[in-house]
């Protein structure tokens, strides 16, 4: 894969670069809801990871194979029983958390199968979303592209919600990157950041 491809990818998916920055070369990675395999292909190219994706859609299975990414067809909602405990260094859930129904058990499964988990999701607390609500509409944006009636997103949350969730479920947050587009947001992230990426592990 050429570097040109990589820069195009990181422009459309700024969370990719943030995720890659946390992953050491040669790590083993499981990407849940891996779509067409873009992230894994990016991590294989930039981090030489040993990666596998899990994906439910038939079309994405073919796309992953075309992207030369290992993919296991399966439904995240029925858990990760096909994977052994502590089998991976990192288990990633990239822009999928908000669309999972059994979010809490899935997060627990991530930390059974992996040493650390990485999650990225759209921040519902982003000021534009708040403005939309204030004006009386459900937010629709580049990060939240769906109308209320056709959205797959059933579990949207804010940064504060997610951090409370991790605390309540005995998960330790190791790192956080908040972004709007490609810019990193350090000031008032729950208000000014449109996307968040977290790295976490089991609390000891």
């Amino acid at each position: 894969m050429s570097t040109h491809d990589h820069s195009t990818l990181t422009a459309t998916r700024p969370d990719f670069a943030a995720i890659a920055a946390w992953i050491p070369p040669g790590a083993s990675v499981l990407d849940l809801g891996c779509g067409d395999g873009s992230l894994l292909r990016y991590l294989q190219g930039t981090r030489k990871v040993q990666g596998y994706g899990v994906e439910i859609s038939d079309d994405n299975i073919v796309a992953c194979i075309q992207n030369q990414v290992n993919v296991i067809q399966g439904d995240l909602e029925s858990g990760l029983s096909g994977f052994e405990s502590n089998a991976f260094d990192y288990v990633i859930l990239s822009q999928t958390l908000q669309a999972t129904r059994h979010t809490e058990p899935l997060m627990q499964e991530m930390l059974r199968v992996g040493r650390e988990g990485i999650v990225s999701f759209p921040n519902f607390g982003y000021w534009r979303n708040r403005m939309d609500i204030l004006q009386g509409n459900m937010p629709v944006s580049e990060v939240l592209p769906y109308q209320w009636y056709d959205t797959p997103n059933v579990h949207l949350c804010t940064l504060i919600d997610f951090e409370t969730f991790c605390h309540d479920n005995k998960m330790t947050i190791l790192d956080r990157r908040v972004m709007t587009g490609e810019s990193e947001i350090k000031l008032l992230p729950n208000l000014l950041g449109s996307t968040a990426v977290y790295r976490f592990k089991r609390a000891v």
């Binding site: 040993q50 194979i65 290992n70 993919v71 296991i72 067809q73 052994e84 089998a87």
Partner: peptide
Amino acid sequence: LHNHLKVSYA
């Protein structure tokens, strides 16, 4: 998977 072999499953 246990043996870290490359595998895809559909």
